[in-house]
């Protein structure tokens, strides 16, 4: 086995995996705290990529500012979506909520097609084509940025959930919503901010991954699919589980594609889900439900 190629494939896998983790974190937060399986999560990823694109092309903002602006705007959209759809439905049947998130996904994707056009677009980033050689491994600055920004954001999110007052409110709500309400936690506020945080994270992933690929209005499908694979593997509602599961998925895809067959790459995710559900239905890294 050629070590250079092996190291390169591992590096590729870790970068892709970290992007999956970033996508999955929002998904798992929303499931953990709001008990919503949010099929529209991928659409917020798509919106993040497009807003970054338009902030760059129409407003002339630099890439980083555009990405941050995109994430903030999408977070605000998340607040609106939660207020209009999910909060009023919170006492309804799970299935109703599931369907409405699917409806929201279709609504956003179709409006995206009308507003943005069906043709692919490219999010310009000054880091996209700059190559970094790290030992024998070659990565673009953008890919290093995806990894580094994701690490920074995840550490920040982790510390926030663990130690901040609001983070404690989120965890309490996730572990026992009625108990949280009777403790004096404003559940509506927790739902609203958690949904905003999740949408902002989705948008940020879109803005970061955008310059490594092309964007079009249906890229949300890809994002939500990867997100769900990771969330199911890592355990619904578990942030640390999502971290390990995402990196694992990225590396296994990369090695599977590199040493077995590319045709096999996509199947790996599904195979892993089935294996995990059979062997550890609560996820690979999960010991109990609830946000920890």
């Amino acid at each position: 086995m050629d070590f250079t190629v092996f190291a390169q494939q591992i590096a590729n896998g870790l970068v892709n995996g970290m992007a999956y983790v970033l996508i999955a974190t929002g998904l798992t937060l929303v499931f953990g705290v709001l008990r919503i399986v949010n099929f529209a999560h991928g659409e917020f990823y798509m919106l993040g990529a497009y807003l970054t694109y338009f902030a760059g092309t129409l407003l002339g903002l630099d890439y980083i500012t555009a990405a941050v602006l995109g994430a903030v705007v999408v977070a605000a959209l998340g607040v609106v979506a939660n207020k209009l759809i999910f909060w009023p439905l919170r006492r309804d049947h799970e299935f109703t909520i599931l369907l409405s998130s699917l409806g929201l996904a279709l609504l956003i994707a179709n409006s995206g097609e009308l507003l943005f056009g069906a043709d692919p677009k490219y999010v310009e980033s000054p880091f996209a084509d700059e190559i970094l050689d790290i030992g024998t491994v070659t990565l673009t600055q953008q890919r290093v940025l995806v990894f580094a920004a994701a690490v920074a954001v995840l550490v920040a999110v982790y510390l926030f959930i663990r130690y901040s007052r609001f983070g404690k409110m989120m965890r309490a709500t996730a572990q026992n919503p009625d108990g949280a309400a009777l403790t004096g936690i404003n559940i509506g506020l927790v739902h609203s901010y958690t949904f905003a945080l999740a949408c902002g994270l989705a948008a940020l992933s879109g803005a970061l991954v955008g310059p490594t690929v092309m964007i079009f209005p249906t890229i949300g499908n890809w994002a939500v699919l990867k997100g769900f694979i990771v969330v199911i593997m890592g355990g619904l509602g578990s942030v640390t589980g999502a971290l390990f599961a995402g990196l694992l998925l990225g590396v296994i895809e990369s090695l599977g594609g590199g040493y077995i067959s590319l045709g096999f790459m996509e199947a790996i995710g599904y195979a892993m889900i089935i294996a995990v559900l059979l062997w550890r239905p609560n996820g690979l890294f999960s010991t109990a439900r609830g946000l920890r």
Binding site: R165, K168, M169, R171, A172, Q175, N176, D178, G179, A180, A181, L182, T183, G184, I185, N186, I187, A288, G290, L291, R292
Partner: peptide
């Protein structure tokens, strides 16, 4: 509920409804 608590009416529920993964001190802070 949080507004009722602000008025001074506090409900210690049947079944306790604690947060199993959180510490005692965190419960008291909340």
């Amino acid at each position: 509920p949080h507004q009722v608590i602000e008025r001074g009416v506090v409900h210690v529920p049947e079944g306790r409804l604690l947060f199993p993964e959180m510490t005692v001190l965190e419960h008291l802070e909340l």
